[in-house]
Design a protein around this nucleic acid. Sequence first.
DNA 1: AACCAGGTACTAA
DNA 2: TTAGTACATGGT
Length: 299
Amino acid sequence: MNFTPLSNYNLYQTLFGGQDFNWQEINDEYWAFLQHAIIRVKPHDEGIFWQTYPEKDNFDLVVNYLAAEEDFDSLKLNLESDSITSLALEKYPGLRILKQDFEQTLINFIISQNKNLPAIRRSIKDLISKFGQEVEVEGGVYKLYPSIERIATLSIEELRSIGVGYRASYIQQTALQLTQNKSTDRKEPTSISVEHGVDSESKSEMTENGLKGLPSDKARELLMTLPGVGPKVADCTLVYGLGRRDITPIDRWGFRIYEQLYQNKPTNNYEIVSRWFSEKFGKDTAYAGQVLFEYIRNA
DNA sequence: AACCAGGTACTAA
DNA sequence: TTAGTACATGGT
């Protein structure tokens, strides 16, 4: 295995908190099952021992996924200017935000709606074990997270078998749309912007690169046209799957943070709370939201 | 045995 | 816009 030092990095809380459902504990190691790779991590005091499969020694994949090169110290300084966030940070030092795969994040958070963390993990684990492609790892056989194309071919019945209930059609339809957008994206490489209808133009932007080119509110609006994707799932996708840091997803806990921790007037209006976070924490909103989420959830 | 879960879609006022 | 409700299934 390779070794990479990691400083001020709360590995366990980062991998197994509420932001990422792809990691499993296997014999004192942490394994992530992605669409095209498996990341294997063995924690160590000063960093991690790691390996990737089926392509081995993929340093860029690991460092990028773990956001290991992010300047956490200056981030920490900014967050400490707020006393409540500072308190949360004391309890969860070194909590990072990972850089997950866009499509996988979208599907996972569609599954997550109205489920608790253990139930989410169980469904995703089943999705992988039932429908993932096999890869050989050190003589054993493991499975990747199923590709979005594969998910698009699954029947409602197959999807129901992983315990996602009414979300099955959301998953199926969203996966179908993403694969279709990917293929039209390839046929029309870049901008020879001929007469696109608003509709087809929007669709062509519903790709990883298309969304990356849009401001957060616009990208969220577009993501919300997908079935099963409301503001919360859209924001999770933007933050965890597209690297956005100027917003934070507002779930039940987000509303509690807004009302109880910061003594704001109770509301059930997503936009109001979302804007409050972004105006208060600016470019570090995602980090503030993340550490406050872990803080209030375990209070 | 209820009640809740990192919500969303739908309906009616 | 805002308020209420059904939804499949599993965790506690």
